[in-house]
């Protein structure tokens, strides 16, 4: 694997929209060519070289290319946008749209990320060591086809709108989350290891949610049907199994309605 290192040299005044920081765009280019790749700062066309010092060299294909950003990207949007392979490591924070519409490869952000991390994701892995703001693995506005595949793991907490309109894939939040988990989802798995304030699985058609902490306000559309033993992301436990959202439409299979599943860790 060949590594390209980007060292931040300047903080953008308006956000830097770096939709070209992807292994796909970097593959087969020289550092000078990478530095000349386009981005946006407001209406101004800028280049990656305006904000980063580029060193190392990429592989011939995206899959053979690793990108390391050696510093903070708090004002850089769209890192790993639509990437298909390879890897990106950010040694600091990143702004919005990390791994947006990503199809494959790996992203590791060692700090925090802002909203829309993994929006419209179709594959690959995102690992965030810090916390995420809102809209983790959500759908783009108005799109009823949200996250399709891939894995997002947030080690810290997350805000609201996790996995909205989700169809597949896995989202793991290792700490607390605020409200709206898997709203409108028709598939996929969301695991929240901390507490959630509420609105878990609202308007949810299909899919699974695991809450290892507490849900402060349960939705009235979820009904407890049984107590089960489960192993979730390496944690064994007893869970209350709810089905819902009973207020929402549900598909039928062999004459029986299929509901979404919500597993909440049973009180000890």
């Amino acid at each position: 694997m060949a590594t390209v290192t980007l060292k931040p040299t300047k903080t953008p005044t308006i956000m830097f929209e770096a939709f070209n920081i992807t292994p796909d765009a970097f593959a087969g280019k020289t550092p000078a060519q990478i530095a000349a790749l386009e981005g946006r700062e407001g209406k101004i066309k800028v280049t990656i070289g305006d904000f980063f010092e580029v060193s190392g060299s990429p592989g011939a294909t995206a899959a053979e290319t690793d990108i390391v950003i050696a510093g903070d990207c708090s004002r850089v949007k769209y890192i790993g946008n639509k990437m298909t392979a390879g890897s990106i490591t950010v040694n600091g924070n990143a702004d919005m749209y990390v791994g947006g519409w990503m199809k494959g490869g790996k992203i590791h952000v060692k700090g925090n990320v802002h909203s829309f991390c993994g929006i419209g994701m179709e594959g690959g892995d995102i690992l965030i060591d810090g916390k995420a703001e809102n809209y983790v693995g959500c759908a783009y506005r108005g799109d009823w086809r949200g996250m399709k595949d891939g894995t997002i793991r947030i080690k810290g907490s997350a805000g609201n709108d996790i996995g909205t309109f989700m169809l597949g894939g896995t989202i793991i939040i290792e700490n607390n989350a605020f409200i709206h988990v898997s709203t409108h989802a028709e598939g996929g798995t969301v695991i929240i290891k901390g507490d959630v304030e509420g609105r878990v699985g609202g308007q949810m058609v299909k899919g699974d949610i695991y809450i290892l902490g507490k849900v402060q306000y349960m939705l009235p559309g979820f009904k407890k049907i049984e107590v089960v033993e489960k192993e979730v992301d390496g944690v064994k436990g007893t869970f209350d199994h709810y089905i819902g959202d009973l207020g929402e439409r549900h598909p039928k299979s062999k004459g029986k309605e299929i509901f979404a599943n919500l597993y909440v860790k049973a009180a000890a």
């Binding site: 609105r199 609202g202 306000y217 939705l219 009235p220 559309g221 009904k223 959202d245 009973l246 207020g247």
Partner: peptide
């Protein structure tokens, strides 16, 4: 701030399901 829960309760009732004693 609990409008969503109340909407969900109305929807659940309209589909013929039971709801908790208080929402």
């Amino acid at each position: 701030g609990h409008d969503y829960e109340l909407f969900d309760a109305f929807r659940t009732v309209l589909r013929g399901h039971d709801i908790p004693d208080e929402v």
